[in-house]
Design a binder for these strands. Structure first.
Lengths: 236, 236
DNA sequence: CGGACGCTTGATAAAGTTCAAAGAGAGTGG
DNA sequence: CCACTCTCTTTGAACTTTATCAAGCGTCCG
């Protein structure tokens, strides 16, 4: 207990060590808590934490893919977002998690105690502003997705999804895009049915915009055509 | 300039005056900046600030109703949220506004300089945690709306909209719910067309769940039936 | 290798959109 | 103060998109 307090005081005086840390963002700060960190492994389909659970930890995805889901009373499901290596979860959940996190593929996660993290932030302006930026970015992502769900057609949604996955995931090699999630996950993310997602992909394939060697791999053959369908001429 | 610095230092030492302020949340803290505040009036349809504008101010709605809109490249529009008296806008927009804010009805707004506000926050833990809570709440609101757009039918969306407006706006007197926004606004908020919104309202009216004396007034005749349609048996 | 699960495609049905036109309300100018 | 007009709302009918239902296929895992 004493050693914890000492450690935190030492860690919290900011701006001395931050030069080597700032470009890493929040992850860099979390690095300072590595002695408290717990490394976890999950299999496909495992639940990391469910909506309503006490948010005792901040999670950093090391490798793999997570889905953040919201379950309705009657079984309907929405996937708010997918997380990949480097992404964080739980920053905005002060008390209880608002969403459930489930492993889409075998996933390695590092859990940092929230209490320690919060204390770290108390003495660290840079960290706090990075947390603020992270939350702002989450809001903006959510708003972009609101627009997608509110205004775009099935075809546009699927195309937009592909472009966003290319921007976001590190699973792009050239034009090869790895999609660890299943069609049902994509459908629940885009507010469509599995069948409609399949048909939209099939249509893009028929137009030679993409190739689909297998269900978890898309090769983008005509990126600008894809962007055009997505309605995002320049990445915003 | 000097007086500004002095004032801010005096104001920033927190926890002395905060007892009478905490229950008011962020608005209470903004009150301390009243000497820098500007009061603005807008007519129906006026733009308070457009997406992309420099976010130089935090806005507090005093009276009236705003819509926060996202405009696509091709004219499609989504309304992310409606704001009423007591609501704030701009807290999450560090640099430029992500959305446009437009007056739905004649509206009075107080603008506080962001720079002063940020400085206020630097020395005030309570304010910062309230800002954090505000951003978290924004994210949760957005996620609930994502679920609405992704999973609910037109009928359910309209019912949910009505229940949320009853919870949110102060424009509820008994079962009378004032809807300052037009049908097109509601449609753009719910990802539907005007006609579909009208038909859903007409259906609820035909089932005696609501009455619609005029386009901007809904009387909820059977609140539990409305909640049932909304799929929110208990308010979550 | 077998079986189960997820993916894909087809046919049909339903929900919502689009197009069209009439009706109601609010604000304006005579 | 009334009539007019413009805009918004409402309802109807046809059409489009997407969901639903159903069946076959492929693949991955055990």
């Amino acid at each position: 207990m004493t050693s914890t307090a000492v450690r935190l005081r030492a860690v919290a005086d900011d701006d001395l060590v931050s030069a080597d840390v700032q470009h890493l963002g929040i992850s860099g700060h979390l690095e300072r808590l590595k002695d408290y960190a717990v490394r976890l492994r999950f299999h496909r389909g495992d639940t990391i934490a469910a909506a309503g659970d006490a948010a005792a930890h901040i999670y950093a995805v090391s490798a793999g893919c997570l889905r953040l889901t919201h379950h309705g009373n009657d079984g309907r499901r929405h996937i708010a977002d997918f997380l990949f290596g480097g992404d964080l979860w739980g920053l905005g959940d002060a008390d209880n998690f608002a969403l459930s996190a489930e492993a889409v593929s075998p996933t390695t996660i590092t859990a940092y105690p929230r209490q320690q993290f919060d204390r770290l932030g108390e003495g660290n302006n840079r960290l706090r502003s990075e947390i603020f930026a992270h939350l702002s970015a989450s809001i903006q992502r959510a708003h972009r997705h609101l627009y997608l769900l509110s205004c775009l057609s099935a075809r546009e949604r699927v195309a937009t999804f592909l472009t966003r996955m290319m921007q976001k995931s590190q699973l792009v090699y050239g034009a090869r895009l790895d999609l660890p999630m299943g069609r049902q996950d994509i459908a629940d993310h885009l507010g469509l049915t599995v069948e409609t997602v399949c048909r939209a992909l099939a249509a893009l394939k028929a137009e030679s915009v993409i190739e689909v060697p297998n269900a978890h791999l898309v090769v983008v053959r005509d990126g600008s055509a894809l962007s055009a369908v997505a309605g995002e001429p320049s990445l915003s």
